[in-house]
């Protein structure tokens, strides 16, 4: 307890000195699927178009559906805005995955600490997001989409992200959070505690490699859900950020990929996805 208090006091103490801030720990507000600690500049609008194709291999992949390109796992259009330097809001629309389709998501994100050259050692950001499943309710009482009232359609994810730009090439991030679905199947749990990690390595000024993994600690094995693991690379072109991802997660939004990933890397159930981010000054 004393140690925790001391750590908090040290971090708060460091915030009182103005130092040269460290920027671009990550290139965008998303790493591959999940949020990064990075924020939009004030008055900047970011439009994100993210897409995930079908399985590359396995029983649903292969040449018949051209390695997943004939199928669509999920697609998301997002509009995100930097209200202040440290506060972002966003709204998105997802195709959705499995039985949770036609999903609208929104989030608020606040940066408490920004890394500094000779000051604060980390970035610390909190993200609270919510999703609403818009599909028609299922009539199957065993379905996860058997909605009897609107509140059952809500999914929440709150997480704390901590990152550090180690040097110009290497950035690391860990995240801890709580994911909650208001309605789950009889053998599942509503609340999930998860931890994630990200490694980003910039090979050149405009090209970087990224790995992202999220582990749910209290996942019910009987549901067959898997932990989402993604690898990818980014192409940075100034104003644009283009990311290619290989992932076993079908969903793009954190409210979907944390509890809706059933694909197994080892069975070839992974897919290509991409996202294009474009920023505008408003």
């Amino acid at each position: 307890m004393k140690l925790t208090l001391t750590t908090v006091l040290v971090i708060l103490g460091l915030t009182t000195f103005s130092q040269e801030k460290i920027w671009n720990t990550f290139e965008g507000t998303r790493v591959l699927n999940n949020h990064s600690t990075e924020m939009l500049y004030k008055h900047n609008l970011e439009i994100i178009i993210a897409h995930k194709f079908g399985d590359i291999a396995g029983s649903n992949g292969g040449f018949d559906n051209f390695f997943g390109f004939d199928n669509l796992a999920d697609v998301r259009f997002g509009f995100e805005y930097g209200a202040t330097t440290n506060f972002d809001i966003g709204l998105g629309r997802n195709k959705g995955v499995n039985q949770q389709t036609q999903v609208i998501d929104g989030y608020a994100k606040y940066r408490f600490i920004q890394q500094e050259k000779n000051g604060k050692p980390i970035n610390l950001t909190f993200v609270s997001s919510m999703a609403f499943v818009g599909r028609k309710a299922s009539t199957d009482s065993t379905s996860i989409a058997y909605y009897k009232e609107p509140l059952e359609r809500l999914i929440f994810t709150n997480q704390i992200l901590v990152s550090r730009k180690m040097n110009q090439r290497l950035s690391l991030q860990i995240n801890v959070g709580y994911h909650h679905r208001n309605l789950v199947t009889y053998n599942d749990v509503n609340g999930m505690i998860f931890t994630g990690g990200v490694i980003r390595y910039r090979v050149t000024q405009t090209f970087g490699l990224i790995t992202e993994y999220n582990h749910v600690w209290n996942r019910v094995k009987a549901t067959g859900q898997k932990n989402p693991l993604s690898v990818g690379f980014e192409l940075i072109t100034g104003g644009h950020n283009f990311t290619i991802v290989l992932s076993n997660g079908r969903g793009i939004n954190e409210n979907l990929f944390l509890s809706n990933t059933y694909s197994d890397w080892l069975k070839g159930q992974w897919r290509i996805g991409f996202s294009i981010n474009r920023r505008f000054k408003l």
Binding site: W23, Q205, R279
Partner: peptide
């Protein structure tokens, strides 16, 4: 300069920038 939000093409004074 990174963080200035003046131009879409931002960089710093690191070796990756100069190589680019």
């Amino acid at each position: 300069q990174l963080g200035k939000n003046i131009t879409a093409f931002e960089f710093d004074a690191e070796s990756l920038t100069f190589s680019f």
